[in-house]
Design a protein around this nucleic acid. Structure first.
Length: 467
RNA sequence: GGCGGGGUAGCCAAGUGGUAAGGCAGGGCUCUGCAAAAGCCUCAUCCGUCGGUUCGAUUCCGACCUCCGCCUCCA
């Protein structure tokens, strides 16, 4: 089934056809983190969403080049560097490392390229020069360079491609005008920000004097460098539609005269416990906060992947606990299949895989995709229970699971090897049980539980599971 | 004020002009000496409210209530 995605550019569901359909190459750019703090659960929803898009494309046979920028120069960063009396590189390096660690913890595939804004100042300046030469950018009295929406529109280019804009009705200017008063028009935005003393030594030379890049320009410069002047996919959180993505389109198309991106995908935000996340409400979580509560990255990933990307998702701790139980159900089933299959291999059972991929093809209907997973688990369990599953069948089922999991990316919990001490206790319990000393057997079971191991008596003998 | 997205069981969440997927929690049962984060089964006469269209609406239309997002740094 052909993959359909909701393109913000056309506000409609469209079949995904890349620019290079013959070679199945896909260029995908995802707006990455501004590294001034640890990323929160809302940020992670968007990055896990981007990972799902990438994995779905790879599952569909595309060769994806995944690019994610690291914004390492920006107002908040500069402010904190100054406050903490550190250097830009030292400050941003710390959060960049944390970000990439967290990305891995969440089971996201690492982007192929992670360009930093500070390492692309030359490209950024080059792009601004093009815009100035084309007459859609101007240097203001304060030394900054701005993009002129009016001039841009004057050459027949579309501003407001991602959403309906009614510049007259908008409340633009209420707060913007106060700090960016050198602009010709309030809708104009900065391409190059002139140096101010507060910037400290965070500054670069440019044809317009010392300064630093504006926020939007880095994404245009780096995506064009990595993926070309026109590429397939650009994604980010819904809040970025305006002004960030709209401005990216304006800068890029204003400079190249070519269409910038074929497909724009935007992920919705999340609420936490039904409310907007905020530090004062105590519902503001970073991934590290959740790990500290004893949850795992794969549990968080599972939960973030339970709802459709274009719907607001309500993230709850109760849901996160539920994630553990749901994953255990899958782990149990896959574990049994492994035992049954042994060294046997087989081609994947395609009924499950097809059902799963059909769900995803429908604008990443992940809920329907999970439904196919759990229906498969139930059917598989039944077949295991009535012994109607051969090693061959089990191997085919496992192969199918592996295909499905190449998209879900939750893997399976590694079967933890019980240390000698635990094994010895388990043996002692078996002895006690055999001697029908159930009191002792139960006491040992409680002791094991206290040490973090659960014992299960199965028809095939005892099984130890790590909590 | 402008633009946009929602309101489906205790919680999370799909979906459809023809009578409500899936997960968690709950309940029942099975295996078990007892158990289990083991397995199976079960769990919405009903989809924010009120009207309208229709043989039939949760699904389409209208009004209203309510939540959320963007318009300003923001995933």
């Amino acid at each position: 089934m052909a993959l359909k995605l909701f393109n913000t550019l056309t506000r409609s569901l469209q079949e995904f056809v890349p620019l290079d359909p013959a070679r199945k190459n896909v260029g995908m750019y995802c707006c990455g983190p501004t590294v001034y703090d640890f990323a929160h659960i809302g940020n992670w929803r968007t990055f896990v969403f981007a990972d799902l898009v990438r994995r779905t494309l790879e599952f569909s046979g595309y060769h994806v080049t995944h690019v994610m920028n690291i914004t390492d120069v920006e107002d908040k960063i500069i402010k904190r560097v100054r406050e903490q009396k550190t250097t830009l590189r030292e400050f941003t390096g710390k959060f960049e490392t944390a970000f990439l660690d967290d990305l891995k913890t969440l089971g996201c595939r690492e982007p192929h390229q992670k360009p930093r804004a500070t390492e692309h100042i030359a490209e950024i300046i080059g792009l601004i020069e093009k815009l100035v030469a084309r007459g859609v950018a101007y240097k203001a009295a304060d030394g900054s360079v701005y993009f002129s929406i009016e001039k841009y529109r004057g050459c027949g280019c579309g501003y407001g491609q991602l959403l309906k804009l009614n510049l007259d009705e908008m409340r633009a200017g209420e707060r913007v005008a106060s700090d960016e008063y050198e602009k010709e028009s309030v809708a104009d935005f900065a391409l190059w920000k002139a140096y101010v003393p507060e910037d400290g030594d965070v500054t670069w030379d440019s044809p317009w004097g010392k300064g630093r890049p504006g926020w939007h320009i880095e994404c245009s410069a780096m995506s064009i460098k990595a993926l070309g002047e026109t590429f397939d996919l650009h994604l980010g959180g819904e809040d970025l539609k305006f002004p960030h993505h709209e401005d990216e389109i304006a800068q890029s198309e204003g400079a190249t005269g070519k269409p910038f991106v074929k497909f724009w995908l935007h992920g919705a935000h999340l609420l936490v416990e039904g409310k907007k996340m905020s530090k004062s409400l105590g519902n503001f979580f970073t991934l590290r906060d959740l790990l500290a509560k004893g949850f795992t990255g794969r549990e968080v990933r599972y939960l973030l992947l339970t709802s459709h990307y274009r719907e607001t998702f309500n993230f709850t701790l109760e849901g996160l606990s539920g994630a553990r139980a749901a994953l255990a159900r899958i782990d149990e089933c896959v574990g049994k299949l492994r035992e049954l299959a042994g060294a046997t291999t087989a081609a994947a059972e395609m009924r499950f895989v097809d059902q799963f991929s059909d769900a995803l093809a429908d604008d990443l209907n992940i809920s329907a995709a999970w439904a196919s997973v759990f229906e498969w688990v139930r059917e598989t369990n039944k077949r295991i229970a009535d012994n109607s599953l051969s090693a061959q069948d089990a191997a085919a089922a496992l192969a199918a699971w592996e295909k499905v999991d190449s998209v879900l990316g939750i893997g399976t919990k590694a079967e933890a090897e019980a240390p000698a001490e635990i094994q010895a206790l388990a043996n002692a319990r078996s002895e006690a049980k055999k001697a029908r000393d159930f009191k002792k057997a139960d006491a040992i079971r409680d002791e094991l539980k206290a040490k973090g191991w659960i014992i299960e008596d199965t028809p095939k003998g005892l099984k130890l599971k790590k909590i």
